[in-house]
Amino acid sequence: MKVIVNQAHVSNYPNPIRFNKGDPLMLGALDTEYPGWIRTRTEDGNEGWAPVQYIDRDELNQSQGTANTDYSAFELNTRQGDTLTVLSELNDWYRACNEDGTEGWVPVNTVVPFS
């Protein structure tokens, strides 16, 4: 699906977290703006938001978890009028690809369907 950016988005995270399936994670608060995201810290100390669906929480210690898939929190910086190809949707964010071939996350509410 193609979408057009109607509101520019600039990432607030210059060093986005990333993890691989099986990595241990420390978990914090759930996001109140975008439900389904949890504050996550990786073993290297980097911290950011990750989808709750990508993490298996430890049953005995809810502040710990294990990644159940590979993940990168890289967000696309967009400008109004940019055309993106949507790869997937999760928790009110699109994983998308811009015209340069760069993949990353953008908030669903910053784009409209291409017509």
Rank of each mutant, 00 (worst) to 15 (best):
Ser63Asp: 11
Gly48Ser: 02
Glu33Tyr: 03
Trp49Arg: 02
Glu47Asn: 04
Asp58Leu: 08
Asp56Pro: 00
Arg39Val: 04
Asp70Ala: 06
Asn46Ser: 15
Glu43Cys: 06
Met26Asn: 13
Tyr54Cys: 10
Leu30Met: 05
Trp37Asn: 02
Gln64Met: 14
Asp31Met: 00
Ser72Pro: 05
Tyr54Met: 11
Gly65His: 03
Thr42Ala: 08
Asn46His: 13
Pro35Ala: 00
Gln64Trp: 10
Gln62Cys: 07
Pro35Cys: 01
Gln62Trp: 11
Arg57Met: 08
Gln64His: 15
Pro24Ile: 06
Glu43Ile: 10
Thr66Val: 14
Thr32Asn: 08
Thr66Ile: 15
Asp44Glu: 12
Asn61Val: 14
Met26Gly: 07
Trp37His: 05
Thr42Phe: 06
Leu30Glu: 13
Glu59His: 12
Glu33Ala: 07
Leu60Gln: 15
Arg57His: 03
Pro24Lys: 13
Pro35Thr: 01
Gly28Ala: 05
Asn46Trp: 07
Thr32Met: 09
Trp49Gln: 03
Ala29Gly: 09
Trp37Glu: 01
Arg57Asn: 02
Thr69Glu: 11
Gly65Arg: 02
Leu27Lys: 06
Leu60Trp: 13
Val52Asn: 01
Asn46Glu: 13
Asp56Val: 11
Gly36Gln: 02
Pro35Asp: 01
Ala67His: 06
Leu30Cys: 05
Asp70Lys: 03
Asp70Glu: 04
Ile38Pro: 04
Ser72Gly: 12
Gly48Gln: 00
Asp31Tyr: 00
Ala29Tyr: 10
Asn68Phe: 04
Glu43Asn: 10
Gln64Leu: 15
Gly45Trp: 13
Trp37Gly: 01
Thr66Arg: 13
Gly65Ala: 04
Val52Met: 08
Thr40Glu: 04
Asp56Ala: 14
Ser63Lys: 11
Asp56Tyr: 09
Thr69Tyr: 07
Val52Trp: 00
Ser72Gln: 12
Thr42Gln: 07
Thr32Asp: 10
Gln53Tyr: 09
Arg41Pro: 03
Tyr54Trp: 12
Ser63Ala: 10
Ser72Ala: 12
Gly48Ala: 03
Ala67Ile: 08
Ser63Val: 05
Leu25Glu: 07
Asn61Thr: 12
Asn46Met: 13
